[in-house]
Design a protein around this nucleic acid. Structure first.
Lengths: 143, 143
DNA sequence: CTGAGTGCAAAACATTTGCAATGTT
DNA sequence: AACATTGCAAATGTTTTGCACTCAG
């Protein structure tokens, strides 16, 4: 069990509320996602394995799936082969991906407010901008 | 207007301008991308093979790579495992992906004008919205 | 003719799945 | 004790690569 109970009571209770079990693997995966937002399954797998006894890839995938299902983590696709995970309560933000250097910056979701409103008005489309990855070139690479 | 023989004089001349060769495979792949925008490599492979003598997947991938390199086609990531290709001169648009039914709608890129300006102003980030896939729920699925 | 492009088959990856063993409740 | 989760290994699906052959230039 998690010895330090102050940190995030949400994880355990959320899992239990969904009738799911609180396991070491899920706690460790959640900790890694918390620690390094925007990381790929690959990076998460590696980090989890540095953090204690080995966990096979399939278990990490299953843990991510479970955590996502109960809504404590979410993922975004930043580019080609890269789903990246982050905590769901991680502030709503847009992902800015630099095509040159690969850096991922965040920006408040509010900047897309006009776009969201326009899509609602023009298409009746309810956009989820937190899932959105915007490609482009960052200020550093441009200068 | 280029005022010459075919429907798309650009393909052959663009390839040649880049020192690349104009081959049947590339023409057929380009034709399929033109005919069905937003299609995955998988769908393109299938359609190409319906259109004439069989072409192995690897050749279709290589053709797409070549066409993208010279800039006549481009791709976007609509969701998980799905790069989708379209003609580069296909009007600049946003991709609206419905999470429920999977439908892909298009919307003029201008709707994102405010967002692009804000990203430029706030982050010095030059956003390419045509590469952007916006997840959400379409009007049909919401009603 | 010459080398870019192709076809084929195998390799490289990323992710998923079946099932017996394990650990949470 | 009951059964959700895990570990392991094998299956799956996609994209890439090596190499001999072919065809565009």
């Amino acid at each position: 069990m998690s010895g330090s109970t102050g940190e995030r009571p949400e994880l355990a209770s959320t899992l239990r509320a969904a009738g799911m079990r609180v396991t070491g693997t899920r706690e460790r995966v959640y900790a890694v996602v918390t620690e390094m937002p925007h990381s790929t399954p690959d990076a998460i797998i590696e980090r989890v394995n540095e953090s204690g006894p080995p966990v096979p890839p399939s278990s990490v995938y299953r843990a991510l799936e479970a955590l996502e299902e109960v809504g404590v983590v979410a993922h975004t696709h930043l580019d080609h082969r890269a789903p990246t995970y982050h905590r769901a309560d991680h502030a709503r933000h847009l992902h800015l991906v630099c095509r040159s250097c690969g850096a991922v910056a965040e920006s408040p979701a509010e900047l897309a407010g006009g776009l969201v409103a326009a899509l609602e008005r023009e298409h009746g489309f309810a956009a989820d901008v937190t899932h959105m990855a915007i490609q482009g070139e960052c200020s550093t690479c441009r200068s």
